[in-house]
């Protein structure tokens, strides 16, 4: 598969508990799809960019969204949050994943 290797990106997924998985994403794959192809379970919901269940955070590298990430506000995008269901890696990258990432993004507004 030397033809596709040239266009794959190495995506390192890290969890808060120290777990770490590396998957390769082809140009046709979102981060979520690349993880699924290797049987790495990430949280997800709508798979269209509306619900934020799949939120990750870019620690290193560059990703771009296929379509408008409606679930993220400008402040979230500025902080490096991405929606793994509609995001593709543009370089090799390291993404913080797992439910904790989304939980940290939205806090109790009255506290």
């Amino acid at each position: 598969m030397s033809g596709s290797e040239a266009t794959t990106r190495e995506v390192t997924l890290t969890w808060q508990d120290g777990r770490r998985e590396t998957v390769r994403a082809t140009e046709a794959q979102t981060i979520l799809e690349a993880a699924e192809a290797r049987a790495v379970g990430l949280p997800f919901g709508c798979r269209t960019g509306a619900c934020a269940t799949c939120t990750g955070r870019v620690a290193d590298g560059r990703v771009s969204h296929d379509r408008e990430p409606r679930a993220l506000k400008p402040r979230h995008l500025e902080s490096g949050y991405v929606l793994c269901c509609i995001a593709r890696p543009r370089t090799d990258c390291r993404i913080e994943v797992g439910a904790d990432v989304r939980t940290a993004m939205v806090s109790n507004p009255w506290k």
């Binding site: 509306a50 934020a52 269940t53 679930a71 993220l72």
Partner: peptide
């Protein structure tokens, strides 16, 4: 959905 699903803001 894009408002309430990510959480309450």
């Amino acid at each position: 959905p894009a408002t309430y699903q990510p959480g309450f803001d």
